[in-house]
């Protein structure tokens, strides 16, 4: 069974909600990212998003842009990220979602990517600029290898688009909580509760909420009605503050523990 499905099943049995943090592969270098991944697992991450840096991250706000720039300067890339994941997999069974833009995958070769991602131990792929209209050039190859393609839904997605996405989605649904780039505006839990609850009526897939969750309290509010809180830019800001020092791994780990404590403290909806 795909590690993501297994993890959500296990969490549901325990009556728990998921923390899905985001890390850029190669910020500040791949060795540190590897340490961060393992520390994240120990600090309460249930699933981890690993960002493949891209030169033109049009959906990302300043924090993730900067992180991607640093990773690229440090020599990170899609193949290097896959190598790091394969390395992590020798000691960890943490479910991993590869996050990124389509061009590096397209250039790598779709079939080759699906095969290498599967053998590295990637469980799902989220490609920001591959909407349902274009996803057929990647999704079947991933699915053949047992890898989920994670679809995004947004406040702008109408009912027809929701249905279109639900027909193809697997793994979990990622609801983008604000119109904007990553990390730009704080999530407004009250305004998205109804949307998430309406999605709940249409699918059995777990629903994660992301874009704009930056504090343990916000994470707690979101998981009152969602199955997972995705946190990216806020982690980048912590790592930005301590980048290049010995503190980066413990500080990120400590922030993740606080997020996970927030999630555990939420009343179960």
């Amino acid at each position: 069974m795909n590690r993501i499905d297994a993890r959500f099943r296990e969490l549901a049995r325990r009556g728990e909600k998921a923390l899905i943090p985001f890390l850029t592969a190669g910020d500040p270098d791949l060795a540190t990212t590897r340490e961060l991944v393992l520390a994240a697992e120990d600090s309460g991450a249930d699933i981890l998003e690993i960002g493949v840096p891209f030169s033109d991250p049009t959906s990302d706000g300043p924090a993730i842009q900067r992180s991607a720039e640093i990773a690229l300067e440090a020599g990170s890339s899609l193949p290097r990220a896959l190598e790091m994941i394969a390395d992590v997999r020798t000691t960890s069974q943490l479910p991993l979602v590869l996050y990124g833009y389509y061009n590096p995958i397209f250039r790598y070769g779709v079939e080759r990517f699906a095969a290498d991602a599967a053998s590295a131990g990637v469980d799902a792929v989220l490609v920001v600029d591959l909407p349902p209209e274009e996803v057929d050039e990647l999704l079947p190859s991933l699915r053949a290898k047992g890898i989920h393609f994670i679809f995004l839904l947004a406040p702008t997605s109408d009912e027809a688009r929701v249905r279109k996405v639900l027909r193809r989605a697997s793994g979990f649904l990622y609801y983008v909580s604000v119109t904007g780039v990553t990390g730009a505006a704080p999530v407004q839990p009250a305004s998205i509760r109804a949307v998430v609850e309406s999605l709940r009526g249409q699918t059995d897939l777990p629903i994660g909420v992301g874009f704009g969750i930056s504090s343990p309290r916000q994470a707690a509010e979101v998981v009152e009605f969602a199955d997972a809180a995705v946190v990216g830019s806020a982690i980048m800001r912590v790592s930005d503050e301590h980048r290049g020092t010995q503190r980066v791994v413990p500080e990120v780990a400590s922030f993740l523990r606080r997020l996970k404590d927030g999630i555990r403290s939420a009343p179960q909806g």
Partner: peptide
């Protein structure tokens, strides 16, 4: 060609 953009922009 095509439409390789974020879901947020697809409806627009």
């Amino acid at each position: 060609g095509g439409r390789y953009i974020a879901e947020l922009l697809m409806p627009a």
